[in-house]
Design a protein around this nucleic acid. Structure first.
Lengths: 134, 134
DNA sequence: TGTATTGTAATAGTTATCTATGACAATACT
DNA sequence: AGTATTGTCATAGATAACTATTACAATACA
């Protein structure tokens, strides 16, 4: 299965950051192998219907963080040895994500346990939809 | 217990929107009674350490949506009869919130059921902290 | 050597959110 | 009547995240 990118415009998370996250977690989950080539900036820009600069910004950050190696004229590749996102860090990232979500809930005066039940319901629905889709 | 506002700067949700949401849900949850007075724009700006205009923008949107009545020189009050946020709408809003959260999770290639366990753990920790705090 | 493909960079413009500041207008209060 | 308090408005500026466009530079490849 090939690794694919996707963007959500409703989450409030900037596009370039979504791409950065997807690569980092893609590597952490073994869906992106060291040495594997990422789409060209132009191609991904077309695929995601986003500006070239947005992709370039994401790749540039990934380069700085050592997640990928880029070579002008050649392409962008997943680093051979990836220093980033040890299991603990991955867990921390998940916790940050959850924390923000709970903050939002709390700000609305909602009870988290009620929201969880909605959450699980939606998950069930989506899982069902995915299964049917095959 | 008096109704209090709080802002999170890490959620990506604009301040003015957080305030709007808190009032709407505060009303829906009965924590804000019809006729009840909201803090003045200046006071709330000081409390939340945010610019006056940001509060004014939130109140203005609430006024337009019929959630509050404002009178220059007098103050801002929760509408006597509030048309907004019937139970179904409240549920829809929760679902939107959950949907965005799940989108973020999916974008990172995380499995939602694993995240849920982290979520419940954090909730337990926070509940514990709140209980100890009393 | 030429040509296409890669990433990079510069510039300009848009939109949303927020800050800072100062002024104005309606109401309440003494 | 005068003064303080309320919400409102206008202007200017900052920042972040984009889009659009054009050009340049390094590499690959025929």
């Amino acid at each position: 299965m090939a690794f694919t990118f996707s963007l959500s415009n409703s989450s409030g998370v900037p596009y370039y950051r979504q791409i950065v996250n997807q690569v980092i977690f893609g590597v952490a989950n073994g869906m992106l192998k060291p040495g594997e080539r990422l789409p060209t900036v132009r191609q991904l820009a077309v695929d995601l219907q986003v500006n070239l600069n947005t992709i370039a910004k994401a790749y540039s950050e990934l380069e700085i963080r050592g997640v990928v190696n880029t070579q002008q004229g050649t392409g962008t590749f997943v680093s051979e040895r990836n220093p980033e996102l040890h299991p603990e860090e991955k867990q921390k990232e998940i916790e940050r994500l959850c924390g923000r979500f709970l903050d939002e809930i709390a700000a609305m005066g909602l009870h988290s346990r009620e929201v969880i039940s909605t959450l699980t319901t939606i998950i069930q629905e989506r899982t069902k939809k995915d299964t049917e889709g095959r």
